[in-house]
């Protein structure tokens, strides 16, 4: 297997979110990973942004649809007369 192409800090920074989101192709991901292994400042940035995204997820997922709404929708569907099927 060939070693990943070398990329600089700017390229790594541009792809950082895609890397964290698991959206890169395997080759591109290997390039970013190789850079992060070698570059302490970029690795630090990765840790910071990773913490930020985890924090966002933790703070925003608590809301659930209220019970009265669930009930209404259930009834609405149950008694819907405008059948299209």
């Amino acid at each position: 297997m060939n070693a990943p192409r070398k990329i600089d800090c700017q390229e790594a920074a541009e792809r950082l979110y895609e890397y964290l989101d698991g959206e890169l192709t395997p080759d591109s991901e290997a390039e970013v990973r190789a850079h992060l292994d070698d570059c302490a400042p970029c690795f630090k940035l990765l840790g910071f942004e990773d913490a930020y995204l985890s924090f966002l997820r933790a703070r925003t997922r608590a809301h659930q649809a209220p019970e009265h709404l669930k009930k209404k929708i259930f009834e609405q569907v149950l008694f819907d007369q405008d059948s299209a099927s």
Binding site: K44, L45, G47, F48, A51, Y52, F55, L56, R59, T60, A62
Partner: peptide, 21 residues
Amino acid sequence: EVQEADPEGNFFDQIVDDEVL
């Protein structure tokens, strides 16, 4: 701005849900 003082972003943890929303 924060890489010296708080590189792990600990300050985020003090911000409550409603403020984030």
